[in-house]
Design a protein around this nucleic acid. Sequence first.
DNA 1: CGAAATTTTGAGTTCACTCAAGGATGGTGG
DNA 2: CCACCATCCTTGAGTGAACTCAAAATTTCG
Lengths: 275, 275
Amino acid sequence: MENSFSSNALGDELPPSEEPLPVVKLGRYAPLSARDRQFFARALSLDIRTVKVRSVVQEAFGGARKLAFLLSGWACCYRVLGDGRQHLVACYLPGDTCDLHSLTAQRRNTVLVLMAGARIANISADLFDTLHQSHPAIIRALWVDAHVSSSIEREWLVNVARRSARQRIAHLFAELAWRCEAAGELIDGRFQLPIPQSDFASACGLTPSHANRILRLLHEEGLVTWSKTVVSVHDRASLETAGTFSPDYLEPGRLHATRTPRRRGDVAEMASLEI
Amino acid sequence: MENSFSSNALGDELPPSEEPLPVVKLGRYAPLSARDRQFFARALSLDIRTVKVRSVVQEAFGGARKLAFLLSGWACCYRVLGDGRQHLVACYLPGDTCDLHSLTAQRRNTVLVLMAGARIANISADLFDTLHQSHPAIIRALWVDAHVSSSIEREWLVNVARRSARQRIAHLFAELAWRCEAAGELIDGRFQLPIPQSDFASACGLTPSHANRILRLLHEEGLVTWSKTVVSVHDRASLETAGTFSPDYLEPGRLHATRTPRRRGDVAEMASLEI
DNA sequence: CGAAATTTTGAGTTCACTCAAGGATGGTGG
DNA sequence: CCACCATCCTTGAGTGAACTCAAAATTTCG
């Protein structure tokens, strides 16, 4: 199963500092014992694959259901519409679980696309079921992981529904910068973004032409530059301001205080439930 | 805990036909044994509450974390933005699990709002943890449930990002009609929609004024009428056509065939992974 | 019954779209 | 290795859909 590209990392006994990224990430979501970590690291090492070029994962391997963890590179999830067109609904960075929810669906709505050079670790559905019994802490971490993914998609919805074109694009860049930083993929203010501009545009609910215009604007303003497959963040603070970005939705455990406006008939704190 | 309003249903031994709606619904998502069903029905009967008026659930009861199942009436989930404003991101019908993912978050991003007359059954986080050991089938069903909720939010994203105002509104009405029908809440082509028009508008990524104009248009076209808190679907087929609606994303197990267009460098069926 | 929150409607404006064409890029095959 | 071709990016001009702002009508709730 091991192939040409992936020769480093993921040998047998790993020093904790070189744990597979998914283990590190899930460990931040729920306390994992050394045994949990070792078991999960081993599970991740069973079926590792590297793709040379952009690849669509769809019910390959005779339909044996798998859960993919991204070890390096990029992956995206597209919703497939009735007419066959695709809409970008999520993207994955190293360490991310890819389309966790699709594991429980008989047929899928979506396709997982691996960008050129991506390396993934597959875990079979059977092994996933086993985890429920043997390593519940891992499952608990995966619930949190699902919650974070869901939270991100929710934010994309709010982004498209409430903000202007400039805000939307700035917000998405800010989110990606934040997530890349957390994954150690933000180097010198730059990160990879190996997707077509048209997909990026539609994720923001914009036409490619208009998105391109706004990109030029943000470039001229000195906030970000997206050239080829690399995004350079020149002024991160301004970018986050421009997108009204706050990372609260990316952190499962933290949330800043907010004033909640009262509405007609609102009853605070479930007062009316107390009897 | 029982209170004035909720006197019917949910006594002790229930005939299977009068199972609580959440049991019926989860039973459609994963095979549940008679013991699973009985246990879950009993768990749901422990803490039932009815609200008289619109109520906001936020960390009430001293922060004891709970999972709410909607037994009757309406509930909505709002994302709370940095400036305190709220954005509708999900709505729940009888039988639905409310904001399942928030159970795993330390602090929440969102608020759950119960509309006047709603009846919910709370399950404590502890009991939820217990289920992992004692009734894994219920947890499996909840995974599917989370997947369906996630799929709906994803569709809202696509709705707002890709469709015109008329299509968005028609699509959301079509979705609600479909879900209400599945929950037995579509009576004579009518269903309840007890939320302000402004929330509905923002869920569609529209301003209230413009949404109102489109609502008038749809009414004049004879597709739907939304008056007070009741939506009357006059021509469902046309409504679904107008919204390019397909219920594929609401059914965890089914998916219609689609043509998937090839792109530059796409490799079908993971061919490149086979070595 | 009065106050506050919604819904409805209008007029004018703007942001984002459509349509179109030229330039750049990268993969592919000769 | 180079030329070709498909895809993607870039830019322009004109249009239209959805927005803003404002005010009146209606409903709901206290």
